[in-house]
Amino acid sequence: MSLYFRYMIILLKSQLQYRASFIMLTIGQCLTPLTSLAAMYFLFERFGQIKGWTFHEVALCFAVTHIAFSMTEIFARGFDTFPSLVRDGEFDRLLLRPRSTVLQVLGSKFEFTRLGKFAFSVGLLAWAMMQMPTPWTTIKLMTLGFMIAGGVLIYLSIFMMAATLSFWTIQGIEIVNVLTDGGREMTQYPLSIYHQRIRRFFTFVVPFACVNYLPLMVLVDHKEAQSWYALLPLVSVLLLIPSIGIWRYGVRHYRSTGS
């Protein structure tokens, strides 16, 4: 773990070499969620509420999703940009070092400019939390923590599986963005507003609902909420384990084919 922070420090130093570009990108990164949020705001201004969800409840949902996604981009960008590591032959260099490939890939890139997006989302979360009529109990705060951590783990798992694909093919993995970017866009809103099939897909196949919609119901004291929903974010670990397995298989394949 300490090595991971060493990687982070050296890459932060590198990034700060280009200060102007760093500042501009960081500010620019706030704008994407801001426009989505503005769209959402006008929607609510027109209709008041969507399927019983109020604006600040949806804002809470939105903030949690964006915090998780931007954290994954900051801390696990190495897997997201992994195809270039293979293409440049840099992955060979990682194999020459006496550390695990997962740790080294994580340490190969951090997207610090996403701090802007992260800070914006944290601010939004704080605002949404203050708008809640019921008090924030310890259980609710823990659930919130689980939701964010679980979201990070799901995005990380998808990034890892997509990265593994690049051992076989350099192109064509754009399709995975349907899950990452698509998943992020979907889970900005409570999943109950979507069609049942979509809900099922994002519950049982890619369990975004388990880290977002279902525990969110606990946070807002939704009438259909079950208290065990608070623990559902732990399901994300079930996705991470096979992702690591698939990754290892990919590394073995790479070393036997050298493609």
Partner: peptide
């Protein structure tokens, strides 16, 4: 590491190789 002084790279390698 391309953008940092050589010494920084050496120190990171020290940690990688323990």
């Amino acid at each position: 590491w391309w953008d940092v002084p050589v010494m920084d790279s050496y120190e990171l390698l020290r940690d990688i190789y323990k």
